[in-house]
């Protein structure tokens, strides 16, 4: 299939998916809607990470810093009497400020040093917030802020629907961002940086500027998702907002589906959430073992992600392909 036809097909599928997702509240009950909201939230987060990790090749673990600052800063704004719009914009500003402060020094680092630095940024910020004692905030807020979001007049069903559409909007934005990136020269530039930064720079790609732009875009999206999440669930615990586990989960989803692709992260989110819902929360440790085994198997046997099944058809899971994948990165 020619590239332009594939892109047109991508656009049509995306439009249909969004349209279908908009109608979901008509058929779903409370539980179904909750799961659908989670899916939308994870898709938004997965695509934001895909932007950094998949297309640019930077394994960033700084996402909790943006998610947490988006959530906690919005809470602090609300608790201190700020209106909702100010809370949203203010927390976005805080996250972007953090992204600039973090991005400038860490983006110079190479390889594992970048991974470790971004991990420590998240952990440092989490500990900083836990020790914060200001603005009616003492390492956490025990107040449920649902009443402060200004939607108390709504019934619980409508309330949940509002946040479903908010998350869906964010997820759509993230998908569209990746979609647009795939069609633009910036997508090619990012992949060139990922595959060989020195060569890309020599050909005139402004690597550092592009990387900072990507980090900022990703941080903004993650921060908005964090804010929406905080408003949705009402009471937010600091450790949960800055949880590294969430980010690792997201990374696993992106890897599972296929990093650096439009549909891979969506596929990964659906597969992982389906597994989690099937096994259930009562058996959390079993879920953990199963997802760990899946990660190991995917890395060994299908390092380009499950998306390969759409590209190669059933051949992607033929024993011969799997064996070749297994041998691909083996030490000789």
């Amino acid at each position: 299939m020619p590239l332009s036809a594939a892109r047109d097909r991508d656009g049509i599928v995306l439009a249909l998916l969004v349209l279908g997702a908009c109608c979901l509240p008509l058929v779903f009950g409370a539980y179904g809607l909750r799961v659908a909201t989670m899916v939308a939230m994870y898709v938004a987060l997965a695509q934001s990470w895909n932007l950094i990790g998949g297309y640019t090749g930077l394994i960033s673990l700084a996402q909790p810093a943006f998610f947490g600052s988006g959530a906690i800063a919005a809470l602090i704004f609300l608790v201190n009497g700020a209106p909702v719009w100010l809370a949203v914009l203010g927390s976005l500003g805080v996250s972007l400020a953090i992204a600039v402060m973090v991005g400038a020094p860490t983006l110079r680092l190479v390889g594992h040093y970048f991974v470790v630095a971004t991990l420590l940024v998240s952990e440092a910020l989490r500990n900083l917030v836990l020790n914060l004692n200001a603005f009616n905030f003492n390492g956490g807020i025990s107040v449920n802020i649902v009443s402060k979001v200004g939607l108390t007049a709504l019934s619980p069903t409508t309330y949940n629907q509002v946040f479903y559409y908010v998350m869906l909007g964010l997820a759509t934005t993230a998908m569209l961002a990746i979609f647009a990136l795939e069609r633009s020269k910036w997508g090619l530039a990012l992949r060139a940086i990922r595959d060989n930064q020195r060569a890309a720079s020599a050909l005139g790609v402004a690597a550092t500027r592009l990387k900072i732009a990507v980090v900022l875009a990703s941080a903004a999206l993650v921060s908005l998702v964090g804010t929406a999440w905080a408003f949705w669930i009402g009471t937010v615990e600091t450790n949960e907002a800055f949880s590294l586990t969430l980010t690792f989960e997201i990374i696993v989803m992106v890897f599972l589906g296929g990093r650096g692709t439009l549909w891979g992260p969506l596929l990964g989110v659906l597969v992982v959430l389906f597994i989690n819902e099937t096994i259930g929360v009562e058996l959390a440790e079993i879920t953990q073992v199963v997802s760990g085994v899946i990660v190991v198997l995917v890395v060994l046997l299908q390092p380009d992600g499950l998306i390969q099944i759409f590209r190669q058809g059933p051949r992607a899971f033929a024993p011969k392909t799997l064996a070749a994948n297994l041998r691909r990165y083996r030490v000789r």
Partner: peptide, 16 residues
């Protein structure tokens, strides 16, 4: 089986 691949594979494998 991941040593000569991109370094993100090693991180993903050991995380799993």
């Amino acid at each position: 089986y991941v040593v000569s691949g991109p370094h993100s594979l090693g991180i993903a494998l050991t995380y799993g």
